[in-house]
Design a protein around this nucleic acid. Structure first.
Lengths: 258, 258
DNA sequence: CGAGGCTTTGAACTGATTCAACCGCAGTGG
DNA sequence: CCACTGCGGTTGAATCAGTTCAAAGCCTCG
C-alpha cells in the first residue's frame, strides 16, 4: 500500500536530492550539529553547520527499504521504533535488530551497495536522511566527521558481536538480558529505567532472541513468578535488575550430593 | 617514513601490554597499495605509496590482544588463522569469529577505545599493523581511502548480521553452511574449493555455531553418512555443495495424515 | 614411551519446540 | 449495540533435538 513511497524514495536516490513524497509535509530538517548530537558523536563542526539533512516520516508497518534495494542513504532515527529482519526462504523472517532513537540505519548495505536486511517501522517514526555522497563529501572537508563515523559503525559492530554473549544462556536469562537492554536504552533517552513499553510483539522478541514466541511468553511469566518483573501486555516493570543480570544456565544438579 | 608507526607501536609495547616478544623481529612491511589489495578495496593511491606498514608475527596460541586493552591499531591478516572470543563469566568463552587472510581485525574496539574481544592465533600468523592515527591521517588526504574503510567495516557488520541466518536451522544444517563458508573462503584465496583443512578444533566450531562439541562431531558424522562430505580429522572433502546448502529443519511429520 | 589434548561414541536427560486450543481485545459491518 | 473476524497473547501436552555426563580411542609432541 505504501510501496509508492519506496518507489519515490528510489527516484530521489537517483536525483541525489532526497525528498520523500510521503513526507508530504517535510517541515523539518536537521543541521549537521543536530545529526551528530543524535548519533552521539562529538566533533568540532563550526564551519559546517550550514548543511541540512531532510527528514523522513514513516507510519507503523511502513517499510524504509527492502533487501536488494540500492543503498545510497543512511538514516539516523530521531523518533520511533523499527525492526530489521533478514530474508530467508523460511516463512518466518528472523529479526536481527530493533533500531530506535540514536541508531544509524543502513550501514549493512554500504559494502555491497545494496541493502541486506528489511527495515520496517514498529511505530510512527521520524528519520534523518544522510546521503552517502554527502557523507563522503563532508568527510573530505571535516576529518573529525570521518572519525565519528568510524566510531558509530564500529559501535554497531561491537554491539552486534556482544549479542553472541546471549548464546548459551537459558531462554529465561536471555529474556532477562533483553529487558535490561531495553531498560538501558530507555534510560539513555531520559525515560524511566524500570517501567517501559516494549515496542514489539512476543513473536518478534522471540525471533530476535532465538526462541519460539511461546517460550518468550513463558519466560516472561516465569520471571514475573520469581518477582523480578511485572508484566502487563507490553508494559514491563523491572523490580530486581541485579537478579535479571545474574540469571544464567544453572549448573543443573544431577542425582548428586545427598 | 616509519616514524609514526614505530612511535605508536613502541608506545603500546611500553605502556599497555606484553605484546608477544616474537614480534621483535618484524622483517617485513607492506605498502598502502599492498594493504588495500589485501583488504580487497580498490582505490587510487598513486600518491600515497610511500607509506609503509609494519608486520607482526604471531605463533600458534599467541594472543594478539585481550579484552580491555586499548585499541590503537587495526590489523589486516596476511597469513594464518585466528579466533575471536567473547569474555563471559562462564568457563567457556564463546567464539565469535575466525579471521583469516583478508580480514581486518580490531574494528570492534574503535568505538569504546578498548578491545571487546580476545584475539588468539590458531596457527602461525602474519598481520599488517594499521595504526588508527595513520588511518585518520591518510583518510584526510586520500578521500577514497575513507570510503574503502567504510566499506570494509560495513562488510564486517553485514557478515555478522548474516550469521543470524543460521538461527532456526538444525545443527546439521548449521554445520553444512559453516563448511560451505569455509569452502568459499579457501576458494577466494585460490585454494581448492572442495578439499581443505579446518583450522579450529571441534569445540571451537561448536561454540561458534552455538552447539556442544559433541553435537558438532555427530553432525559431521551424519553428513558423512549421507554422502555429502568426507571427514578425516580436520580435513574436509565436500561432495555435494547443493545438498549442504539446502539442508534445513525438516517439517517434522507428526502422527500425520488421517 | 607417556602425558595430555582432541575426538568419538554411548546413554540418560531436559529445555525448548511444536501443535492445538482458548482468551481478550480492536476494528468492522450489519 | 452486538455478532463477527483476526491478531496477539496465553496455556497445556506431547515430543524431540541437543546437552550433559562418562568413558574410551586417537593423535601429537616432548
Amino acid at each position: 500500500m505504501f510501496s509508492m513511497q519506496e518507489r519515490s524514495l528510489d527516484a530521489q536516490h537517483c536525483a541525489d536530492q532526497p525528498m520523500p513524497a510521503r513526507a508530504a509535509s517535510p517541515q523539518h530538517s536537521s543541521s549537521l550539529i543536530e545529526l551528530c548530537e543524535l548519533l552521539n558523536v562529538s566533533v568540532d563542526l563550526r564551519h559546517y553547520s550550514h548543511f541540512r539533512f531532510q527528514h523522513v516520516r514513516l507510519r507503523r508497518d511502513d517499510h524504509l527499504y527492502h533487501v536488494g534495494q540500492p543503498c545510497r542513504h543512511l538514516y539516523a532515527v530521531k523518533t520511533g521504533f523499527l525492526k530489521a529482519t533478514l530474508p530467508t526462504n523460511m516463512e518466518r523472517q528472523p529479526v536481527v535488530g530493533f533500531p530506535m532513537r540514536g541508531s544509524l540505519i543502513g550501514i549493512e548495505g554500504i559494502a555491497s551497495g545494496r541493502h541486506t536486511v528489511d527495515l520496517a517501522a514498529l511505530s510512527d517514526c521520524e528519520l534523518v536522511v544522510l546521503p552517502l555522497d554527502t557523507l563522503h563529501h563532508l568527510g573530505r572537508e571535516c576529518p573529525d566527521l570521518s572519525r565519528g563515523m568510524y566510531s558509530v559503525m564500529a559501535g554497531e559492530l561491537a554491539r552486534e558481536l556482544s549479542v553472541s554473549k546471549r548464546r548459551g544462556l537459558s531462554a529465561k536469562a536471555r529474556i532477562g538480558r533483553f529487558l535490561l537492554d531495553w531498560s538501558d536504552r530507555f534510560a539513555s533517552m531520559g525515560y524511566a529505567r524500570n517501567v517501559f513499553n516494549l515496542p514489539m510483539a512476543r513473536g518478534d522478541m522471540g525471533s530476535y532472541l532465538g526462541m519460539a514466541q511461546e517460550t518468550a511468553t513463558r519466560a516472561l511469566f516465569s520471571l514475573e513468578q520469581d518477582g523480578l518483573i511485572s508484566i502487563n501486555q507490553r508494559t514491563i516493570c523491572i523490580h530486581d535488575r541485579c537478579a535479571l543480570l545474574t540469571l544464567k544456565r544453572q549448573p543443573r544438579q544431577r542425582y548428586s550430593s545427598d
